[in-house]
Design a protein around this nucleic acid. Structure first.
Lengths: 141, 141
DNA sequence: CAGGATAGTCAGAGACACTGACTATCCTGC
DNA sequence: GCAGGATAGTCAGTGTCTCTGACTATCCTG
């Protein structure tokens, strides 16, 4: 029986997610799945909460709740947005960047494993297909 | 900037998941994400709770909670397992099967959309790569 | 500058996932 | 055959995540 593409996408995704989370936690940067998903969407120069909520596809209340926790953990900070005094910019702290570095390293290691299993050609094709798929599946690309 | 493979896998996955859920709900078969993920793992001839919990990677308590709700909604039923009187078999009802049919139809429609966007060649390559990736990322394959 | 839109927060509720503890049944080795 | 460990499932309690609804403050447009 053919598993659906949905399931086929989900399996490696979760595999990677869990391994990265484990590694990051072991390195002293505990974070939950929901927190990490939001955290990933923060721009280099900082993101507004509402923008973040849209990107992560949660309500702004949920985003606010998660940012509270990321802030408590020392990964991000809120600061005033100079362009709009209603808004606040969520920016990544040094500690947050350190955590990201650990995550990225693991991620690259896993991608390398995958590339070794698939071969370089199929590996490039996979990424290319997913990038193209994003065009019609990510409203916030 | 290159988005990570993890994110690239997640985006279309969630896109599909949400569209199917919407469709199924509109057709009169409301179900939550967590319920659906468990529901998908039920075998044709019925599954034991503990087995189901392992497959969906949740605790058996969580699986029990979700089966309660699926039972309330009329999608599954519990019956005694003839081979083991400790165990109960969770089986899919007629109503459950009707819901699955709606979901599958939508899933095929979305896959067709994707194939149209990627082209038949890249589309086949994508599936093939994901199937191969499963070999090293799915402990329950 | 009035009125609608937007950024964010507060409060309350439900869903979901966990750990720990428990009962009932099964199975294995003596 | 039966004692002891393993297994199937449930109950209770807790923490996390997500939502809806209501609210304040600020921005923007006519």
């Amino acid at each position: 029986m053919q598993p659906s593409l949905g399931v086929l996408l989900f399996i490696p995704y979760r595999h990677m997610e869990q391994r990265i989370l484990q590694t990051v936690e072991a390195a002293g940067y505990p974070i939950t799945l929901a927190q990490a998903r939001l955290f990933q969407r923060i721009d280099e120069q900082g993101s507004r909460l509402t923008r973040l909520a849209e990107a992560a596809q949660v309500t702004k209340q949920t985003a606010g709740y998660l940012v509270d926790q990321l802030e408590d953990a020392g990964y991000v900070q809120r600061s005033a947005d100079p362009d709009d005094s209603r808004a606040k910019l969520v920016t990544i702290t040094e500690r947050g960047r350190a955590g990201i570095a650990v995550a990225r390293q693991k991620e690259e290691a896993i991608e390398a494993e995958w590339a070794a299993h698939l071969g370089p050609r199929a590996s490039r094709q996979l990424r290319a297909a997913l990038v193209r798929l994003r065009e019609i599946t990510d409203p916030y690309a």
